[in-house]
Design a protein around this nucleic acid. Structure first.
Lengths: 343, 343
DNA sequence: ATCAATTTCCAAAACGCTTTGGATGAACGC
DNA sequence: GCGTTCATCCAAAGCGTTTTGGAAATTGAT
């Protein structure tokens, strides 16, 4: 059993009040006494009981992440692990706990209410926002500080978010391909009910439009971002009567699928056909080296996690500090997977 | 602000005691009163404050996961997300919270002591056990219920764990390749300081031995399991004077790297060269379909997460229930990546 | 030396719940 | 009608902190 404040105070011949103040850096305690208390605390391996502390202060010292697990397709977002790692770093550094709730996506709203009502967290981070996401209004009404990883088109009320510039990112990637002479560019997107995927498509369409190219629905796909999805998409599209000469992929995993699909048909990336992908810099799928495998729009999701956590903690500390937003630009890095269109 | 027990009691003209007992199913409360209380609680959206509750009961109602982030190689284990999803499901169902600590791997011990001293969790799950893992002795001494995801060779004291039969798994895979006439089989392993990797190597060696084949150090590699690692390993090994005719990979991601490395050289899986991989059934890397891409030793890490959580909750509920262990066998599923050795 | 201002400490209340140890009637047996 | 047993409720203590509102001792100014 761990030592309590009262015990520590007794062993020092002091009152709990003084010990508490000594350890929490209040001014009204003698410097000598403070030293004495600090030493005793360290010696006894004293750590304040989190629950008691937060009961007394009213702050949970914890941030919640609700991860919805789709009841139908059952996919766990691989990006999630790296984001969490980044955020967790910041929480730990600031004495916050991270609590995770894995819930079926149809009872996500309930999870937030529950976390709020039980006072388990001081704020939450929302993952995977969709177009017109109802969670935003709900959380605003609840009065629980929150921050979106991503944005949600169609919601007019202000809210805090951190996002990458998906639209610009995919616009630039598309332009880049156009400049290489590509006229038929396929978009292998994530589910377009997800806000990021929608924005990426918008960027893609915008660039096509500016290049005077008409979008072809046959070349646009959306689905859960698995490797086989990329594979099938590549194989099917390349066998169209008028096949694409370039692919735009929404994630490294999809890009690997496309790569496999194409090389199974004997096509070589860069020379025969081009691929640009978004790269979240997942640690186990590094796309670096002198010449990266894929030309990519690159942005570290782990860094996004760090920043998101910092922003939310700021929001929790000063509830008035208004909606905080940050738009991260991605880098368009040149890899070996792109080249001029074959004529 | 959420409603408290006291307020609820006042609004009902009852004492907090009675309301508490009514909601917690104690017998000494009138059936009619209980109904009345339950309705009022639901109407007021009452949820007991977690911190107050656990202060009073002494139980945290939370399980901790400490995920060490290597200060050097900075890899976030992709298997982690799926495991967590499985475990989280069980926690949620049983009213437990999941708390995550992301810590530099050199201060992991401190994290456990801290969680314990602050009374933040009722138990912890250990990830990524190494050979002779010191954390086991430490936690046993702390008196905090814990369970390993994996095992740790060299530790004699009993402890609770859930693991897959890595040794048997890789032994069977190796035997399978031997039966196809393969004599030179490469092992592209994870870091062998990790217990699972060590066991896999043992299984591999055992099978080679029984087949009367001498292991060749040139054919055995270990590293962090990234895609480029698989790629490089495949390319380098295949260009040896006496190259392998089959590869054994430690994860799907590595297997994809190998696949890319080989097909870049124009080799076709199954006919030209064989690959068997371990498959954790990560949701975004499904290896299924009529004929799976890879022949694989398959075991769902998500299911392991579920079972691990159940076991730990059991351990927390009945501390005496002694070390709980479960060894999950893997399935050896036939895919398109294996065939008879080319002569 | 006196009074006010500082320092330095403490007793007690509060946070929101559970739980112990009764209290109050009603029902029951005779 | 009386004592006993149940059924049903409650007051108060306690969990381990923080924080409010002093109190005592020391210092400083005059």
């Amino acid at each position: 059993m761990s030592v309590t404040l009262k015990q520590l105070a007794a062993s020092l011949g002091l009152s709990p009040t003084t010990v508490s103040r000594a350890l929490n850096g209040f001014p009204e305690v003698n410097a000598a006494t403070r030293k004495r208390v600090e030493h005793a605390a360290a010696a006894a391996n004293y750590h304040p009981n989190t629950r008691a502390k937060s009961l007394a202060t009213g702050r949970a010292q914890a941030i919640g992440h609700v991860i919805p697990v789709s009841t139908s397709h059952e996919i766990v977002n691989p990006v999630f692990a790296d984001f969490i790692a980044g955020a967790g770093e910041i929480y730990a550094r600031n004495g916050y706990e991270m609590i995770l709730r894995v819930v079926p996506d149809d009872s996500e709203a309930h999870a937030y209410r529950d976390l709020m009502a039980r006072g388990s967290v001081d704020g939450v981070i929302l993952h995977g926002p969709r177009t017109n996401d109802a969670r935003v209004a709900m959380l605003a009404e609840l009065g629980l500080p929150f921050l979106l990883h991503g944005r949600t088109s169609g919601v007019s009320a202000p809210y805090s978010w951190i996002d990458i510039n998906n639209q610009r990112s995919f616009k630039r990637a598309t332009e880049f391909l156009c400049n290489f002479g590509h006229r038929r560019i396929a978009l292998i997107n994530g589910l377009e009910e997800m806000d990021f995927a929608r924005r990426r498509r918008n960027g893609y369409l915008e660039a096509l439009d500016e290049a005077g190219l008409a979008p072809d629905p046959m070349l646009m796909r959306q689905a859960e971002m698995t490797e086989p999805y990329g594979y099938r998409a590549a194989q099917e599209l390349i066998q169209l009567p008028d096949p694409p000469t370039a692919f735009l992929a929404s994630s490294m995993i999809v890009a690997y699928g496309i790569l496999r699909g194409l090389s199974d048909l004997g096509l070589k990336l860069g020379s025969d056909i081009s691929v640009v992908t978004h790269d979240d810099e997942l640690s186990y799928l590094p796309n670096d080296g002198d010449v990266p495998l894929f030309t990519a729009t690159r942005s570290s999701v782990r860094e996004a996690g760090r920043r998101a956590a910092s922003m939310l903690l700021q929001l929790v500390a000063e509830p008035g500090s208004g909606p905080l937003t940050e738009l991260m630009e991605t880098a368009l890095v040149l890899g070996a997977s792109t080249g001029p269109a074959r004529v």
